[in-house]
């Protein structure tokens, strides 16, 4: 179960800097802070809803740094035309959540 995370270190750095720019409190971003960022992608709301479902791994309505990276990864892939999966593939689960 030692699968490398699909979010590459250079992508993680980019996502982390976005995360930090949004003003996380206690290391987490609430849904109302993340929502406008995802809406900025211009993806349909039903797609973004699924991205949220897949990335909010503990279902607390907030994203920590790693969950946010999963969300951003899925948004970027979707913008490149890749379908958002119905469930999170193991390589996309952050190592800290396995």
């Amino acid at each position: 179960v030692d699968i490398p995370w699909v979010v590459k270190p250079e992508e993680k750095m980019k996502f982390d800097s976005i995360f930090d720019s949004l003003g996380p409190v206690g290391g987490i971003l609430t849904g109302d802070k993340v929502k406008p960022v995802l809406l900025n992608s211009k993806l349909p709301v039903d797609i973004l809803g699924r991205v949220w479902e897949l990335s909010d791994l503990d279902r607390d309505g907030m994203l920590d740094r790693d969950e946010f990276s999963v969300a951003m990864y899925l948004v970027y892939r979707a913008l490149e035309g890749e379908p958002v999966p119905m469930s999170l593939p193991p390589p996309l689960v952050p190592p800290s959540k396995r």
Binding site: G31, V45, W52, D60
Partner: peptide, 13 residues
């Protein structure tokens, strides 16, 4: 907090 009728924590629903 999210008026969705359920217990959703998804801000897009």
């Amino acid at each position: 907090q999210y008026p969705t009728g359920g217990s959703s924590t998804n801000p897009f629903l």
